[in-house]
Design a protein around this nucleic acid. Structure first.
Length: 432
RNA sequence: GUGGGAGUAGCUCAACUGGCAGAGCACCGGACUGUGGCUCCGGUUGUUGCGGGUUCGAUUCCCGUCUCCCACCCCA
């Protein structure tokens, strides 16, 4: 025992998700699972931590995430002869899934359509819509090219699925931003052209752009400084450097999207943060999220498997920022409104009635009714108050008279209507 | 990692220039021992984020620190 009364709090950037908000999280996750099923996606669960090297090689050594935002530690060996191993809490899901694809030779199954729901970890400074432990709903379509994994039809299918999902959870006014970042050759030529174009003008730009012009010219397109925009507008675009196959691929994706009626904007300034992205890159954005306006992002990563030591395995995937989707949704509908309220509150009245009430509650719950159960120590007034507060539709009074008659007082809390219902008919009456 | 703002009851917020920490909602009990929501009465609301300093005295002023919010950065 200790006298230390200091409260232990959730650590920076982590938070507790409490009811009724969790109802909204569940709505999103169950809707996602429903939609994914219609597209024949299946669930994969990978470990929450992996070898640090996986992310270094997969995401890219130079990215901010890998170079300064990972939770990494040395895991000591079990014996003195064992080497310590550097482990990392996953900052994103794709690398782990592709690792599993390679490890379990999932190419034997042809095209893999996988999804994964869970927490990710990045050591960033927290702000609205940005947490150190956050949740992603992630999906990947990956397989050998012979299974059609590199087809633009897959890209369009994923995008159409996402539009369906957002509509289904009730998020309106989303925006699909679409671009192609080409293949590595295209990007190398583009990068060179960018550097060349930036050389004479970069001194007139903001300090961030001057730095980016040297380290990662692509990122210049993220700049939001108004004075820089005229300069950025005159820079070359990745679209001018796509080779013929990449250009046709991008055209085909757009053509299918138009065919299925999914609206999108070409955003030729859209670049992605990870090294592994190729060709199609996209973001769904939503206002009202402040600076973190992307609720989901993704793209194609045709070379990732090989970078991780696997066979060629083109793929496309996305990650939904679940925290951000919840934030966007909360503007539209309250968490209370999606909470499932008890159908009935079983109210044991008088000493010894807990036993009978428990029997009744068990019978009703077995018929898939949401039942809240009171306690015999409560007086009738308190039973009513508790039932009302719980949002129950009915209160079911279980007193001595009722137990004797095997017929129970069922009262509609909203209308005040009360009837006596024999045990066998209770479930139907409550459901009606 | 950088810059700015804010932390007072479970929640939303007051407290003059440094002078006894408050209101509403919520919660608990009673009026009211088999029929609620209304009303009335009563009660707890709390190391004023935490730790120092100045002062007879600090929610108030100073320093440090933690957390949240906003922006940068980055991304989902």
């Amino acid at each position: 025992m200790t006298n230390d009364r200091r409260m232990i709090k959730a650590i920076r950037g982590t938070r507790d998700l409490l009811p009724p908000d969790t109802a909204l999280w569940n709505l999103i996750e169950t809707t996602a699972r429903d939609v994914f099923r219609a597209y024949n996606l299946q669930e994969i669960r990978t470990p929450i931590f992996e070898a640090t090297e996986l992310f270094a090689r997969g995401v890219g050594e130079e990215t901010d995430i890998v170079s300064k935002e990972m939770f990494t530690w040395e895991d000591r060996g079990r014996a003195a002869s064992d080497k310590a191993q550097s482990l990392t809490l996953r900052p994103e899901a794709t690398a782990g899934i592709v690792r599993a694809y390679i490890e379990h030779k999932l190419w034997d199954r042809g095209l893999n359509k996988l999804f994964c729901v869970g927490p990710m970890f990045r050591r960033e400074r927290p702000q609205k819509g940005r947490y150190r432990q956050f949740y992603q709903i992630d999906a990947e379509v990956i397989g050998p090219a012979s299974a059609g994994s590199d087809s633009p039809a897959r890209d369009a299918e994923i995008l159409e699925m996402l539009a369906t999902l957002l509509d289904r959870v009730g998020l309106t006014e989303w925006n699909l931003e679409l671009n192609s970042v080409g293949c590595p050759n295209d990007r190398a030529r583009f990068n060179e052209a960018l550097r060349k174009a930036l050389g004479p003008v970069k001194d007139k730009m903001c300090v961030d752009c001057q730095r980016r012009a040297v380290t990662n010219p692509l990122r210049v397109f993220d700049c939001k400084v108004p004075e820089d925009q005229p300069i950025i507008d005159k820079l070359p675009r990745i679209g001018q450097f796509l080779d013929e196959p990449c250009r046709q691929h991008f055209e085909a994706v757009q053509d299918i999207l138009k065919g299925v009626g999914i609206p999108f904007h070409i955003n030729d300034r859209l670049v992605r943060g990870f090294d592994y992205y190729t060709r199609t890159a996209f973001e769904f954005t939503h206002g009202g999220l402040g600076a973190q306006n992307a609720i989901l992002g993704g793209g194609r990563y045709d070379g990732l498997s090989e970078a991780l030591g696997g066979p060629p395995a083109p793929g496309i995937g996305f990650a939904i920022g679940e925290d951000r989707l919840v934030l966007s949704l909360q503007e539209k509908q309250s968490a209370e409104s999606v909470t499932r309220r008890p159908a009935a509150y079983v109210a044991p009245l008088g000493a010894g009635m807990n036993r009978e009430a428990a029997r009744l509650a068990r019978e009703l719950r077995r018929q898939d009714l949401v039942i809240e159960l009171g306690d015999e120590s409560f007086r009738l007034k308190k039973l009513f108050e508790t039932a009302t507060k719980a949002g129950a539709k009915y209160i079911l009074i279980v007193g001595e008279n009722e137990a004797k008659a095997d017929s129970f007082a069922l009262k509609n809390l909203a209308t005040g209507e009360q009837i006596s219902v024999p045990r066998a008919e209770l479930a139907n009456k409550i459901r009606a």
